[in-house]
Simulated assay, not measured.
Amino acid sequence: MFIITIVFLAKKKKVKGVLISTIVVFVLGLASLIGAIGTMASYGEDDSGSSTKMADESSKSDESEEKPSSNNDKMKQKGDTVEIDGVEFTLQGSEYIDDRNEFSDVQADKVLKVDAKIKNNSDSEIPVMSEFKVYADGEEVDTYPSTNIQDMLTGSISPDRAKTGSQTFAINGNPEKLELEFKPSMSFSDERYVYDLNP
C-alpha cells in the first residue's frame, strides 16, 4: 500500500525520482529482512524438532543396547532351542559322571557332562570349539578332558547340518547354582543365552 501511494504521488510530480528510488529500495530491503527472519525462525523450529527427534532416537538406541533382548531375559532350560548368528543350540541334558582321566592335570571333585546339539543354519561351514561355558555360583569352571573323545562336541559343521555330542567340566566343592552360557565361538555379537543346569 505504501509503494502504491509513492507511485501515485510521483505521477502527480509531488515527490522527486531520487527520493522515490530510495524509498522503494528501503521498503524492498525491509520486506526481505522480514522474510529472512521468518525463514530462520521456521528453520530453527525444524532444527530443534529434528534435534529433539535425534535425541529421542539416541536414547531409545541406548536403552535397547543396555537392555538384553527379551528372549534373553528368561533363564533357559533343558530342551530349549536358541539361535545366534545362524548357530542353533539345544541343551539336551547334564549329569555327573564317574569317569576320570588319569592323565589330566585338572582337579575335579566331580565331572559334569553336558549333552548338546548344535545346528548350522548359516550358509558356510562353522567350527565347533567352545560354544558354551559352565559357571558354578557365577565363576567359570575349567573343562575336563573327556575319556570318550568320539563323543566330544568338537570339529566343524557344514551348512544345514547338525552335530550332537558332549563336553565335560571340572566341578569342585558343592556349588548352589550351575549355569551354562551359550555363545558361538565365531560370533561377534554380544548376544548370549544362559541355561539353568540341574545335573
Rank of each mutant, 00 (worst) to 15 (best):
K13C: 04
M152D: 12
Q150P: 04
D142C: 03
S122R: 08
V128Q: 04
Q107P: 02
D47S: 13
S69T: 05
A116P: 04
S50Q: 12
N172S: 03
N121E: 07
D115W: 02
Y135R: 06
S166F: 10
S104R: 04
S156Y: 05
K16E: 13
V18I: 14
N72P: 06
V114P: 00
S69H: 02
I149C: 01
K163V: 12
E66A: 11
S94R: 01
G29S: 15
G49D: 11
M152H: 06
Q167I: 08
D73Y: 08
R161F: 11
K183V: 02
V82G: 03
K183D: 00
T81L: 00
G155E: 10
K117G: 02
V87C: 04
I3T: 15
K113D: 02
E95P: 01
T147Y: 02
D85G: 03
I157Q: 00
E179V: 09
N174D: 15
P184M: 00
P159M: 03
L178D: 01
D98A: 15
E181W: 01
G44H: 12
A108W: 08
K67S: 10
I157H: 02
D98Q: 11
D85E: 12
D73R: 12
T154E: 12
Y195M: 05
F8P: 04
E95H: 03
L33K: 08
Y43R: 14
S59G: 00
S32Q: 11
L9Q: 14
R192C: 01
E57S: 11
I4Q: 15
T5Y: 12
S156G: 09
E57T: 09
S59P: 00
F103R: 15
I37E: 10
S104L: 00
E131F: 07
Y43D: 15
F8S: 13
P199F: 00
S64I: 13
V111S: 02
V25R: 06
D46S: 11
K133A: 03
E140Q: 14
S124M: 07
V15H: 07
D73S: 10
V106F: 01
S58K: 14
G173Y: 05
S156A: 13
G35Y: 09
P199W: 03
N172D: 11
A162N: 09
K133R: 09
F169M: 01
A136D: 03
S156C: 08
E181H: 02
D46H: 09
L178G: 02
S61H: 11
V141H: 01
E179N: 10
F8C: 06
G173V: 08
E45S: 13
D98Y: 05
A108D: 06
S187G: 08
Y43L: 14
S21L: 14
S146E: 01
